[in-house]
Amino acid sequence: MSSQDKEYYDSVITNRDKFFDLRLRDIWQFRDLLMLFVHRDFVAYYKQTILGPLWFFIQPLLTTLVFTVIFGRIAKIPTDGLPPVLFYLAGVTSWNYFADCFKKTSNSFTQNAHIFGKVYFPRVIVPLSIVITNLISFGIQLLLFLAFVFYFIYSGANVHPNLFILLFPVIVIMMGIMGLGLGMLVSALTTKYRDLQFLIVFGIQLLMYATPVIYPVSSIPEKYQLFVLLNPMSSIIETFRYSFLGVGSFSYSGLLYSLIFTIVIFVFGLLVFNKTEKNFMDVV
């Protein structure tokens, strides 16, 4: 045995780490745990409810109803000539997916301290499993949305799905990853500064109003449109609506901006998250 073999070890625990290390290999090793967490969240969510999985449909439907009454009927905000129900349902379905990814991952550390304090596994498994769970419930809610789309096409409304639907997988992944990136960033900071926890609920709500969920971009005065489009979620929601309903604005540059933002925030979030996981048990 050479002296090099003698000093060689598989693994090392120190407080130093490579600055740029996403540790994707660790995640792959724990893929079974990832799927078991998804399974757990699904099974546990609707246990002991009478309506069970129906809640997947009730939540977006109720929100849409409220928006239709308040913003459509009372405030009379234009909907680009679309049936208001369809307009709001499109916004609510896609926005909720992003907001849930963001909100539920943003307390990954504090919510799971009891498990994290006992055993090690790559902590990022937890927010990842949340995003996958949300992706599945988004898939279910999408069925409801499609049912409405078909109904309105059948009844002759001004609804024109088009080829941009091919971009759909891309924007779904972008929403999930952006929510995950932001959530990981916030969860890393909440371990020390709990103030953020309160701020985040409020913040996400505000962000919704800064995103064209309840109004189309076209209804905003030209000089303010830039501000709305600075919000990386704006182009995504607009693209979603444009591809399925054929109304609204779509621009490649806007989508590209969102894509770059998503990648940057995800990589940054993951780095900060991985850095935090090492010592967060001492401060949580």
Binding site: I13, T14, N15, V119, Y120, N279, M281, D282
Partner: peptide, 8 residues
């Protein structure tokens, strides 16, 4: 530290 719950 050995079980990687917290770091050194």
């Amino acid at each position: 530290i050995l079980s990687r719950v917290t770091g050194p």
